[in-house]
Nucleic acid binder design. Structure first.
Lengths: 219, 219
DNA sequence: GTCTATAGATTGATAGAC
DNA sequence: GTCTATCAATCTATAGAC
């Protein structure tokens, strides 16, 4: 109890928290649109009307799911990138592309390993990023934008020989690669001739970081 | 008329063709699940019952949309990769990673520039690849698998110092980057601080190919 | 082959008793 | 805050006249 985080730790006691936890899992497993409020409230063991009572609408529930995790995650990423920025300004040499990319990408994978709920959440991010509905995508992009731009700014600083457009697109490619592994699923296995099981986040990260670093540094 | 391709060129005269063309555009613009048969048949100017009469179901229509384009596209990609393979076996040196990646990725971008319909189609691929419903994804992956595996095989040949798992995952990252630009949209503009307009496929390709090549070749 | 009409099911949201 | 009951809208798919 004494070392636990914020307030409610083990079992969520309030309907609101139960709904957030359940929505995180079901939205990531089946998709936001494909998850009906009936399936959600049944799984959560609460009444059908609870979502609209506590959050106002289904979409407001989705936004609440994002806010709960991203506020914390993005604070970590921004802090890491600011540390890199400060070190550079203090004359401790030019930061490496790899350090910047790791600050941008790694915290999401660490979150992924933090528990079943947050694991679902990172999958949800990857799914929402590719949603057809702009308003659904924009809920996430609103949180993404400041972190993306800070990373972009740092990269422009250490890759002055590249056009800004090149840096921008390469960073887009990198986020695409990262998000693809975030929601890795059976379709991966279908392509995987080697038949090897899906590796854990640490293993994927050790392939992903060199990949995006080399891509960013390409001539 | 004499230089036009296959059979029906300018205006599709049959209901079936009109439905394929309209489905391609609406499925890519709004998503497969989000496009109702009502919206589809209204836009196509045909009767609501036409889809089920001609194709049997909505999902069979999606599959027909894929078959019409992918049979041709994948034949081109396989041919290019086989040419690379033959050259290597004839002792004309080891093929470059860049050649292999270009054979795998470029034809899709060429198709994208071939017209409004095929442009929509490449967007549709990228959207379906990230669909929540496995059966929807699998329709595309069934066509993707042989081409992906051939590319994977070639890459293993020229990157013998890498583990097969590394090659596999790097190729997955590359396809993710390619598919991300395929459905580039307003959400890109939202992130793009430089505010530059979305470049054409040739320009994106000239950034994408060096990126994935460097990523594949990373130590 | 094309049309109208509708069956049959599911959805998000709400009103009102408790 | 939680419940039941229900509304109004949507959907895919089909039956049957023309």
């Amino acid at each position: 109890m004494t070392i636990s985080s914020p307030k409610k730790s083990a079992a969520p006691s309030h309907t609101k928290d139960i709904l957030l936890d359940t929505a995180e899992v079901l939205f990531s497993r089946d998709g936001y649109r494909e998850t009906s409020l009936r399936a959600l409230t049944t799984e959560a063991g609460v009444n059908l009307a609870a979502v609209n009572y506590h959050f106002g609408s289904k979409k407001a529930l989705l936004e609440a799911v994002f806010a709960r995790r991203l506020d914390h995650l993005n604070r970590i990423r921004m802090q890491r990138m600011r540390e890199i920025d400060t070190m550079a300004k203090d004359g401790e040499g030019v930061p490496s592309v790899q350090d910047i990319m790791r600050a941008f990408i790694a915290p999401m994978f660490l979150l992924r390993e933090a528990g079943e709920g947050s694991r679902s959440f990172t999958t949800l991010i990857a799914r929402v990023l590719n949603d057809h509905d702009p308003s659904t995508r924009d809920i996430f992009l609103k949180y993404m934008k400041p972190v993306f731009n800070e990373c972009y700014r740092l990269l422009c600083g250490v890759l002055p020989h590249l056009s800004r457009e090149s840096v921008f697109w390469r960073l887009v490619f990198s986020t695409a690669a990262a998000s693809r592994v975030m929601c890795r699923d059976e379709s991966m296995t279908m392509l995987n001739k080697a038949g090897s099981p899906l590796p854990d986040s640490g293993a994927v990260l050790s392939v992903l970081i060199p990949f995006v670093t080399a891509g960013m540094e390409a001539p």
